[in-house]
Amino acid sequence: MNERIIHILIDSFPKIILPGIAMTIPLTVIAFSLALIIGLVTAMIQFANVKVLKPLARFYVWVVRGTPLLVQLFVVFYGLPSVGILIDPFPAAVIVFAINEGAYSAETIRSALEAVPAGQLEAGYCAGMTYMQTMRRIVLPQALRTAVPPLSNSVIAMLKDTSLAANITVAEMLMATQRAVSVYYEPLWLYLEVGLIYLLFTTLFTWLQRRLEKRLNRSVKGAQNA
């Protein structure tokens, strides 16, 4: 690695990481938050066996999980304008990522809900609580603890998948890197650089996951001394 490369890497670093901070991270955080809400509602509908809505929930999961994310992005961004629905790149990406991840989160949360022993719900009933009270106070907190590791996996996967949004003209990190490549003609070093920045971001999320898990695990391991 000569001086020129080092100079290029330093020069391009802010050009790549700034779109990361301005686009990649917000896209991930906003879309994933929405996905959690969609996933929670979809999972609850299936768990509680809600009539009419349950087949709809299953249909949603089936379609979204069964089609490529990139195709979904193209349908929304390039396809919908032909029926008069025009959405800007960033909101289009948020919508697609939220709907896509919502289907996966729904399955994660549903299996976590099913992993909570049935006796917990019955104990809530016998304590005089309603279904919703028991779900909110007893079952969901326990399910969420089970769901955190797989959901964290999903956040990290989504953070990396946001690079696909470059295909619908969202000026995120990969697109910024492609621009830098066309300026400096150093594809190897610049793509390695953006890879390292992704690694930096995912490391940050992994660290947050560990902290969250530690907090949630308190009730399980000898917390009486806390």
């Binding site: 022993p117 006796g119 019955e122 104990a123 016998c126 106070r137 007893i138 907190p141 009730s219 917390a223």
Partner: peptide, 14 residues
């Protein structure tokens, strides 16, 4: 009141 064979204490509560 109801007392279960396997206690069924709320695992997430003190």
């Amino acid at each position: 009141g109801f007392v279960f064979q396997n206690y069924n204490l709320f695992a997430n509560k003190t």
